[in-house]
Simulated scan of single mutants.
Amino acid sequence: MSTNLIEVKEKKLYIEYNHSLEDRPTLIFLHDSLGCTQLWRDFPMKLSEGSQCNVLVYDRLGYGKSDPMLTDERPNNYMEIEADLLKDLLTELNITDAILFGHSDGGTIALITASKYPKNVKAVICEAGHIFVEEVTLKGVYDAWEAYKTTNLAERLQKYHGDKVERLFKVWTETWTRESYRNWNIEYLLKDITCPLLFIQGDADEYGTLDQVEKTIEQVSGISDKYIIPNVGHTPHKEVSDLVLKKATEFIQNL
């Protein structure tokens, strides 16, 4: 697995990339709002080995070892902007057969990328993604903010994000809780997703209801499947890693 900083549209992104398998697709991992490459741990390599795919894991702009965010305030369409940056990264690395595995915000970015750039995306695995704002999502964000203020969460995150922690946490919570973001919705893009889709979600997800899954599955144009896991929260790939690996591997093998 090679690691390096790659420049994309004058922004440096940290990537870990293994492309030793000829004529095989590339799994691309998109982390959540507080995540980074390191926090996926060994999950990407396990899925890569099980599905016999190349693998690319990267720190989104503002996270981990990538460049900091450009401003202290995100526009409401920030995930669409990140999908555009992902497309530029794919172009830079000449990847035309991506299988996107996105968690939470990363799942949403995967859906947007598949809708806007269908020629680059072979399939999507969306884990606990969002297509609109729900009250449970806001409660989850407020709870995280409370934990940030009252526990050692900031200190734990510093290990992965260094001096970016305060800014990325502030930007994340302020974006999701501001009044103008309540109407954020990407359902209008779903009809343009023509590639196969697997939507994975725990039925005890503290950031979203199963409406996120059902309404996505109903509106995409390609073949779609859902995998709802009982008694599991917002991070199935950590909570029940073996189940998610098995289901995702089967999905990829059936493409």
Rank of each mutant, 00 (worst) to 15 (best):
S20H: 10
E82D: 14
L90W: 00
H103D: 06
L93E: 01
D23T: 00
T37Q: 03
G64L: 00
Y117K: 07
L39E: 11
D88N: 09
H103Q: 15
D32E: 15
V55Q: 03
H103S: 14
N77H: 13
H31N: 11
S51N: 10
D67Y: 07
Y117R: 07
A98N: 10
D67E: 15
D97S: 01
K12L: 12
H103I: 10
E82K: 03
H31D: 12
L93T: 03
E49M: 03
P25C: 03
D23W: 04
F29E: 02
F43N: 00
K116D: 06
K46M: 09
L85D: 14
Q52P: 01
L61M: 11
M45N: 13
L86Q: 11
M79S: 10
Y17W: 12
N94P: 03
K46A: 11
I81F: 05
L30K: 04
P25V: 06
N76V: 07
E22S: 14
T91N: 14
G102Q: 02
C36S: 14
E16L: 08
S104V: 01
L93H: 14
A114D: 01
L30D: 00
A98F: 13
F43M: 02
T108S: 12
R60E: 13
F29D: 06
L61W: 10
T91D: 15
A114N: 01
N18K: 14
I99Y: 05
V121G: 07
F29V: 00
I112S: 04
G35D: 06
C53R: 03
R41Y: 07
L111A: 12
A98Q: 14
M69G: 01
Y78P: 00
M69Y: 14
P25Q: 10
E49Y: 07
I109R: 05
W40V: 13
E82A: 02
E73S: 12
D23Q: 15
D84Q: 15
Y63H: 02
K87G: 06
D84G: 12
G35R: 05
E22F: 08
N18Y: 02
K12V: 07
S104M: 02
H31L: 02
G106K: 08
F29T: 08
G107N: 12
K46V: 03
N18I: 08
L13T: 07
D32F: 09
